[in-house]
Design a binder for these strands. Structure first.
Length: 181
DNA sequence: CGTGTTTGACCCGCGC
DNA sequence: GCGCGGGTCAAACACG
């Protein structure tokens, strides 16, 4: 399974998992109800088996247990159609990871049972409805959990920048196939 | 002055 | 049906 090819949001690749030396990519979670179903998940032991646990706690417990990943159906009132949800857990001192896109913060929320607030960002590109949530790992504050929701319908500003310099940036930089002939 | 951030209020889904 | 909790909105504020 090659996530980097399936998710344009993912700027990380197996060859270059961390775009910056400060980052240490710990986990890459594919969060999709069709993959991580409650039925699939039920029965497994969790670090914190409390009901009503925040998604953050679920992520944290999941990653701490390496393979316990849960995508709560209906959690967060996600509107259908947004598509892929992807979560990263990486070691970073910074909360905001510069992934090449331009994000606008639209909310901040303290989560129950989680000492660190969760930040909400929207892609500021016109017509792009991708969102991301950023929160610190409840178990290890040096880790940051970034959850992307949706797929960008445009390239990163940096990609466009590079594309304006054809000598420096062939179409390989883009996520679109090169024009035929 | 324009753009981005902050923050309290509001909305809505879910569990009891 | 009610209360709780997470997600979003929008006005005010800050900064370049």
């Amino acid at each position: 399974m090659d996530f980097s090819h399936q998710n344009p949001n993912c700027i990380f690749s197996p060859e270059n998992p961390t775009p910056m030396p400060d980052f240490q990519l710990s986990d890459y979670l594919m969060l999709d109800g069709s993959i991580f179903d409650d039925d699939t998940y039920s029965g497994q032991s969790m670090a914190s088996p409390e009901k009503g646990m925040a998604a953050a706690t679920e992520f944290s417990g999941a990653t701490s247990n390496n393979s316990n990943i849960k995508c709560k159906k209906g959690a967060g009132k996600n509107k259908p159609g947004l598509g892929v949800r992807v979560a990263f857990r990486m070691k970073s001192e910074m909360e905001v990871i510069d992934d090449g896109y331009k994000w606008r913060k639209y909310g901040k929320k303290s989560i129950k049972n989680c000492p660190n607030p969760r930040n909400y960002y929207k892609c500021s590109s016109e017509g792009c409805d991708v969102k991301k949530r950023i929160e610190r790992d409840i178990n290890d504050g040096s880790y940051v959990i970034t959850t992307y929701e949706g797929v960008h319908n445009h390239e990163t500003p940096s990609m466009l920048y590079y594309n304006q310099m054809p000598l420096m940036a062939p179409n390989a930089w883009t996520l679109q196939p090169p024009p035929s002939t």
